[in-house]
Design a protein around this nucleic acid. Sequence first.
DNA 1: GTTTGTTCGTAAGGTTTACTAACAAACGTG
DNA 2: CACGTTTGTTAGTAAACCTTACGAACAAAC
Lengths: 404, 404
Amino acid sequence: MPTPPTSPVASELRAAVTPGAVIFGRSRALRPTGKVLPEHARTHNRALVLQTLYSAGAQSRADVARETGLTRVTISDLVADLIAEGLVVELGQREDARPGKPATLIDVAREAFHIIGIDLSEHEVFRGAVVGLDGQIIDRDEVCRDGATGESAVLLVEALVERLLARTSTPVLGIGIGSPGVVDPHGVVRSAPNLGWSDVALQGRLAARFALPVHVANDANVAVLAEHGSSDHDDLLLVKVGHGVGAGLIIGGRPVVGGGFAAGEIGHVVVGTDGGPRCACGRDGCLEAWVAAPRLTAQLAELGGDGDTGAAASARDDILREAGRRLGIVLAPVVGALNLSEVVLSGPAQLLDGVFHEAAVDTLRKRTMTEFNRDLRLRMSEQAEDIVLRGAAVMVLSGQLGVT
Amino acid sequence: MPTPPTSPVASELRAAVTPGAVIFGRSRALRPTGKVLPEHARTHNRALVLQTLYSAGAQSRADVARETGLTRVTISDLVADLIAEGLVVELGQREDARPGKPATLIDVAREAFHIIGIDLSEHEVFRGAVVGLDGQIIDRDEVCRDGATGESAVLLVEALVERLLARTSTPVLGIGIGSPGVVDPHGVVRSAPNLGWSDVALQGRLAARFALPVHVANDANVAVLAEHGSSDHDDLLLVKVGHGVGAGLIIGGRPVVGGGFAAGEIGHVVVGTDGGPRCACGRDGCLEAWVAAPRLTAQLAELGGDGDTGAAASARDDILREAGRRLGIVLAPVVGALNLSEVVLSGPAQLLDGVFHEAAVDTLRKRTMTEFNRDLRLRMSEQAEDIVLRGAAVMVLSGQLGVT
DNA sequence: GTTTGTTCGTAAGGTTTACTAACAAACGTG
DNA sequence: CACGTTTGTTAGTAAACCTTACGAACAAAC
């Protein structure tokens, strides 16, 4: 006999809801997350402790216990492991006067590790930095690309990493790289036309050479990680305007990769129904043909003059305003479909942070349902040119210390 | 002293990568998944066993052990629990002749539970069904809405559920409801203008009245769950054309809800840059004004005639082709940004399954980068009118038995 | 008919994990 | 100075999964 109708099912099987995991058919999606062993739970809780310390700063074991919901005993045990591995340090006793035994402060060993961040997204130069665990740029370096492609470009990257590693005596947690093009989860650059790369196993090569953890991802997908840090939203779209136009997307706190690992590649989506400038890809009116930085600067240059006179300034604004509007047109369906609350714009401020921005916001508002997207924000990034470097560091931090 | 540079971090902290969980700032996103106890692992593994059985069908404990990676001992233990609760049954010995001790087949107790599925998305009628665990429609019923709104519409839903419950003597796993409008994760219909609902706690009311687990979600978001079953993709967009136009989205195997719980609400996104028909919302050229079923049928009716003569048929095709094209225009940025590989169309086949479909595919192809979306498919749903009913059942199945 | 090898399911015992309970140390407060 | 409070540790317990071992049941080979 089956059990009574509902009670056991209702009360005991109350797992977190993940609709779509159980299905009617017999599809592949059925093979779910896989088994979970107690040791996985331990790993998770360890990461939880690290994150709690990382975000809330120095505090006592008892504080961590209260915040995580784990007991003081368990926290002490986990922290002992972390201290033994050098990831956490004791900082001595808390100063302030409270009743009870004084607390021993602990914190992530913020000075004990550095991260190498690499930005391959610029056209003329490969940039890199030594980044601290808190995101500070400690040292930086760059190599001129000089049009290098294929293997020689890979060698340039290796040389840059080599030089950065030589500049720090602190242990390095890992190497993070933001590359243009399509990058798969194994850090293979499937296709990056600008660099002449096709199926370049960047992660594998660097990991083999430097014996360090290496993480590689698309530049815009990396940039959005940096932005996610200073945002309090779990859904975030970052549009990166540079030599091309790309986007990085976080939904429900997780990066979106896409079926062909090409999520965020919106540069060659056609905008509007009234044609547009001819794009390098052969079509008319691609987003990139409207708003890529080289196209905009070229257009502005054609105007001639210094752009300070009334008429020239107005023509300049017209160009930027139209470009901003075109961006808004492309983003509207995405914002609507995903019900995004925050969109961030990253790129040359002198181009984007004015009428371009205004026009994009305005267009987005006019083209989406305000009732659903009432608190929608489209803002400029505050991270300026280091966004990929810092995002690459976040990627390493998250990959090496993160919670499942 | 810290540990040696890299080895412990690299090897021992290899948690699954979830970039963006660890961040530089001190944002809210930091509070991660929370602690994990051994009992959670157990719950997860139990669900894993259920899913393995559910999708692969009757098999031995040893088969399940091999497939899940857990040991035969653990599987036996878990299965004993599941059998005691009536969720799994033994079916006797396996027939085929193989060496070794004959296996005892076990399977999910597919006949032991039914699910109530409710579809509130149609304008004139509320439809409901008793659904089997495998998705079979066992019995169905409906109530005429007759323009009912607000509280009286809620009472109609309750009456429909009541009648369906009376039609089955099998224990009911739960009640799943697909409602139009914006529904939050607690099953509160925040806003459903057609039904005159605003902050109606549908899940709470039904759960209290029927003492069963209740799940409520937006109709398109529910429909995509049904479609996900017969698809082998983990990224899926379903567009549901009916009285309005809505979408349901699954990314990385997880439903997308959106910051304001309004994900998929693309009906009032403006299409193109050349105006369009006036929409009920006051703007010109909303997607809904182009492709909602009532608008299309009205347009076709204006043509007069039986549409079989050459000229009338051609005019009819023009209307449908333009509507399909408009859908493609809105979907292109979404497909590009998410790098979707599969888009499904659900709605009246006589409208959608012809030139409309062709035009949508064609437009989508022309407006996205074929290199990234090479295997993109836009297909009609095969689930016809029961898609919401079956999706609602999937939602219950997943919520009650699913893996975290 | 016997032996051999395979497969299934279960039993016993060990390890890991986090919990509860209890306690000593160290500190304000009255 | 007694008392309550807080911290961090010790000791013991419960849960969950593992490894190892075993009996039962069968096919195939001899």
